[in-house]
Design a protein around this nucleic acid. Structure first.
Length: 194
DNA sequence: CCGAGGATCATCT
DNA sequence: GATGATCCTCGGT
């Protein structure tokens, strides 16, 4: 496996990249050790006609990283408690991103169990807030180059089959088919509703 | 299995 | 002062 080059994030539109990220490997080298897994669920957030995107009403302090370079991170705090990790895509100043929603754990299981407070392994990284807790990802990593230490993406085999559905947890933009997941993978956060 | 409700706070209006 | 790209617990079926 090799580092995912920035050219990867320029290879198509954001939904295309959201699908292409399935099967790629996310690694965080922390002071405690190396943790990570295989991406099995993503969501695309677009610049235009997408009221659910944090960038829908323009740039603010919180979402500044969404308007940054392709291949960098956008990390934000959700509900005052949880962190969520996005990959910035071919934004060209537009502001688009892919939310990483679930991983299949691969590296540093013991450390991830510790970070997650002893939940069963199936629940270590099967949600955007959960995987950030397991991998110890927080605001310090907002705006980070995802081809550089300590948080980076590696190449990986594409999944055999990809499912598509509406996105999770939104009050607007529910109808858009912008959630993607590895079919029949038990670490996907939940079964699709639509 | 499923839905409702509470936790908790950075950010925005 | 209100909101939310979540998670966990609890109660009902």
């Amino acid at each position: 496996m090799e580092l995912l080059p920035v050219s990867f994030y320029l290879a198509g539109d954001t939904p295309t990249i959201a699908r292409a990220l399935l099967g790629k490997i996310l690694i965080h080298e922390t002071d405690q050790g190396r943790v990570g897994g295989r991406i099995v669920e993503t969501e695309a957030y677009l610049a235009k006609h997408d009221p659910a995107s944090h960038a829908a009403r323009g740039q603010t302090r919180r979402n500044t990283s969404m308007f940054g370079q392709p291949g960098t991170s956008y990390v934000y705090i959700s509900y005052g408690i949880h962190h969520c990790l996005n990959v910035v895509c071919q934004s060209q100043g537009i502001g688009e991103a892919v939310l990483i929603r679930a991983l299949e754990p691969l590296e540093g299981l013991a450390l991830m169990r510790n970070n997650r407070g002893g939940v069963v392994d199936k629940q270590l990284t099967n949600g955007p807030g959960k995987l950030c807790q397991a991998l110890d990802i927080d605001l310090r990593l907002d705006g980070h180059d995802l081809a550089a230490h300590p948080l980076y993406l590696l190449t990986g085999d594409p999944p055999a089959a990809i499912g598509t559905s509406s996105r999770i947890g939104l009050s607007v933009g529910r109808e858009l088919p912008l959630r993607f997941y590895v079919a029949d993978n038990s670490y996907v956060s939940r079964p699709p509703r639509y």
